[in-house]
């Protein structure tokens, strides 16, 4: 579904990714964990062309992602949920959800609104259809952002630290929605620090450190018997 082949990425002199090889399978729930600055976010941002690799290749559905095909390839295959929500503040919730379906996928306004209502129900915010994003709590905004991603009806959804900007009380409402989604056949790539959540939904966990993938395995492997000293250290810090 998504394949990263020896992906390097530098910002100026700083090498953030030092050769990432990774295969995401259809329907898989892949969780990426690791200390901040380890390149987790850059890795998912390479998956939809928000960052282009300095060297190496990214394949989406067996097609190489290039500067040229990025927009059209991403449009039909993946959507993203951001740490800062990034809802469009000049549009209502309904406007946020229907913009891409109408302008990019050629849906009629009525179809797009039906679709939007359906996914608003999934995230439990039907009554907020006409609200503007800034009037919502962080947790609600992020649930709207998830509904917006769902409205593109892509097979892949990328989550870049979806709960890191939230108040502790609202983290759970967003995680609940994501657990619900994980039961569907959507491919999910999730960067997160929520270890309980990772353990619950992940098919596979990847631990990144200093621009490389240090360890990968099932959640059981990770949380019960990680191999690397560095992984143990990190988990020890974050779990206690």
């Amino acid at each position: 579904m998504i394949k990263l082949s020896n992906v390097h990425k530098s910002f100026g002199n700083h090498e953030v990714l030092k050769g990432i090889n990774l295969n995401v399978h259809e329907g898989e729930k892949l969780v990426i964990i690791g200390p901040s600055g380890s390149g987790k976010s850059t890795t998912v941002r390479c998956m939809n062309g928000l960052e282009m690799p300095t060297s190496g290749q990214v394949f989406v559905d067996d097609v190489e992602l290039t500067k040229k095909n990025r927009i059209t390839l991403v449009r039909s295959t993946s959507s993203m949920v951001f740490q800062q929500f990034n809802l469009y503040p000049h549009l209502t919730v309904m406007g946020n959800l229907t913009l891409a379906p109408i302008k990019l996928f050629g849906k009629s306004k009525k179809e797009a609104q039906e679709l939007a209502r359906h996914y608003l129900a999934v995230v439990g915010l039907e009554e907020k259809a006409l609200a503007y994003p800034t009037t919502l709590s962080g947790g609600q905004q992020q649930r709207v952002a998830i509904a917006r991603a769902l409205c593109s009806q892509t097979k892949i959804i990328l989550f870049d630290e979806p709960t890191s900007a939230l108040d502790p009380e609202t983290v759970q409402e967003v995680l609940n929605v994501m657990v619900k989604l994980a039961a569907e056949n959507i491919t999910m790539v999730i960067v997160t620090h929520e270890m309980g959540f990772a353990r619950e939904v992940a098919d596979r966990v990847i631990f990144m450190d200093d621009g490389t993938i240090l360890e990968e395995g099932t959640p059981e492997h990770f949380f019960v018997s990680p191999t690397h000293e560095r992984t143990k250290q990190f988990l020890g810090k974050i779990l206690h």
Binding site: N48, R75, M80, N86, L99
Partner: peptide, 13 residues
Amino acid sequence: PRGQAEAAASQGF
């Protein structure tokens, strides 16, 4: 904010 253009790019605009 840059996140706006990124959100749009991630949707395929």
